[in-house]
Amino acid sequence: EAKQAFKELLKEKRVPSNASWEQAMKMIINDPRYSALAKLSEKKQAFNAY
């Protein structure tokens, strides 16, 4: 599932759970899995759940 892949990406890149969305994006934007969720709102939702 795309959300699961996105959460795994956050874990693998060691994005701190208290990081802001902007900080997290800088760490993950170059990974192909960043595109797993098409909409930015879906990415933010998955990030907030993380």
Rank of each mutant, 00 (worst) to 15 (best):
E1V: 00
E1R: 06
E1Q: 15
E1A: 03
E1W: 02
E1G: 08
A2D: 05
A2K: 12
A2R: 10
A2E: 14
A2M: 07
K3V: 13
K3L: 14
K3I: 15
K3H: 14
K3T: 11
Q4N: 01
Q4K: 14
Q4F: 00
Q4R: 13
Q4H: 07
Q4T: 14
Q4W: 01
Q4M: 11
Q4I: 15
Q4D: 00
Q4L: 10
A5G: 11
A5Q: 14
A5S: 11
A5R: 12
A5M: 12
A5T: 13
A5Y: 04
A5H: 10
F6T: 04
F6V: 03
F6K: 08
F6D: 06
F6W: 01
F6N: 02
F6E: 06
F6G: 04
K7R: 11
K7H: 14
K7L: 15
K7G: 13
K7D: 09
K7C: 12
K7Y: 11
K7F: 14
E8S: 07
E8C: 10
E8K: 05
E8T: 08
E8I: 05
E8F: 03
E8L: 08
L9G: 05
L9D: 06
L9I: 01
L9R: 00
L9T: 04
L10A: 04
L10F: 01
L10N: 06
L10W: 00
L10S: 05
L10Y: 01
L10E: 01
K11E: 14
K11F: 09
K11P: 00
K11S: 12
K11H: 14
K11G: 10
E12R: 02
E12F: 00
E12S: 09
E12D: 11
E12A: 05
E12W: 00
K13W: 04
K13E: 00
K13H: 02
K13A: 13
K13T: 07
R14H: 07
R14D: 12
R14S: 09
R14G: 15
V15F: 00
V15R: 01
V15C: 04
V15K: 00
V15T: 00
V15Q: 04
P16L: 01
P16N: 01
P16A: 09
P16K: 04
P16V: 02
P16W: 00
S17T: 13
S17N: 11
S17P: 15
S17G: 11
S17V: 15
S17A: 15
S17E: 14
N18I: 03
N18T: 14
N18S: 13
N18Q: 10
N18E: 10
N18W: 09
A19P: 03
A19Y: 12
A19R: 00
A19G: 06
A19D: 01
S20A: 05
S20Q: 08
S20N: 12
W21R: 07
W21H: 03
W21Q: 09
W21C: 07
W21G: 07
W21D: 09
W21E: 07
W21L: 03
W21M: 05
E22P: 14
E22R: 06
E22D: 14
E22Y: 01
E22K: 14
Q23I: 08
Q23P: 05
Q23A: 10
Q23R: 08
Q23S: 11
A24M: 04
A24E: 05
A24Q: 10
A24V: 06
A24P: 03
M25P: 08
M25G: 08
M25L: 12
M25N: 12
M25F: 04
M25W: 04
M25C: 13
M25T: 11
K26N: 13
K26T: 13
K26G: 14
K26Y: 05
K26L: 08
K26S: 13
K26W: 01
K26D: 14
M27D: 04
M27G: 05
M27Q: 12
M27E: 09
M27N: 08
M27Y: 10
M27I: 08
M27A: 12
M27R: 05
M27V: 09
M27W: 03
I28W: 01
I28H: 12
I28P: 10
I28A: 05
I29F: 09
I29Y: 13
I29R: 14
I29P: 01
N30Q: 13
N30T: 12
N30R: 10
N30P: 10
N30I: 00
D31P: 05
D31V: 00
D31F: 00
P32R: 08
P32G: 08
P32L: 01
Y34L: 00
Y34H: 01
Y34E: 07
Y34F: 06
Y34N: 03
Y34I: 00
Y34R: 06
Y34M: 01
Y34P: 04
S35C: 09
S35A: 14
S35N: 12
S35M: 14
S35G: 13
S35P: 05
S35F: 13
A36R: 11
A36F: 10
A36T: 10
A36C: 14
A36V: 11
L37H: 06
L37N: 03
L37R: 02
L37M: 07
A38Q: 12
A38D: 15
A38F: 00
A38P: 15
A38Y: 06
A38V: 11
A38L: 09
A38W: 03
A38M: 08
A38R: 12
A38I: 08
A38H: 13
K39M: 09
K39S: 15
K39N: 04
K39E: 13
K39Y: 13
K39F: 06
L40I: 09
L40M: 14
L40G: 06
L40V: 11
L40W: 07
L40Q: 13
L40T: 12
L40H: 11
L40P: 08
L40F: 09
L40E: 15
S41C: 08
S41G: 09
S41T: 10
S41H: 04
S41R: 07
S41I: 01
E42A: 06
E42H: 10
E42F: 06
E42S: 06
E42W: 03
K43V: 06
K43W: 07
K43T: 07
K43E: 07
K43L: 07
K43D: 03
K43N: 09
K43C: 02
K43I: 00
K44L: 13
K44D: 08
K44R: 09
K44Q: 13
Q45D: 13
Q45H: 11
Q45R: 12
Q45K: 10
Q45I: 14
Q45T: 07
A46M: 12
A46P: 06
A46I: 11
A46H: 02
A46F: 02
A46T: 07
F47C: 01
F47A: 02
F47Q: 07
F47M: 03
F47L: 09
F47I: 13
N48I: 07
N48Y: 11
N48C: 02
N48F: 03
A49D: 15
A49Q: 15
A49M: 15
A49P: 01
A49W: 01
A49C: 11
Y50P: 09
Y50H: 01
Y50C: 06
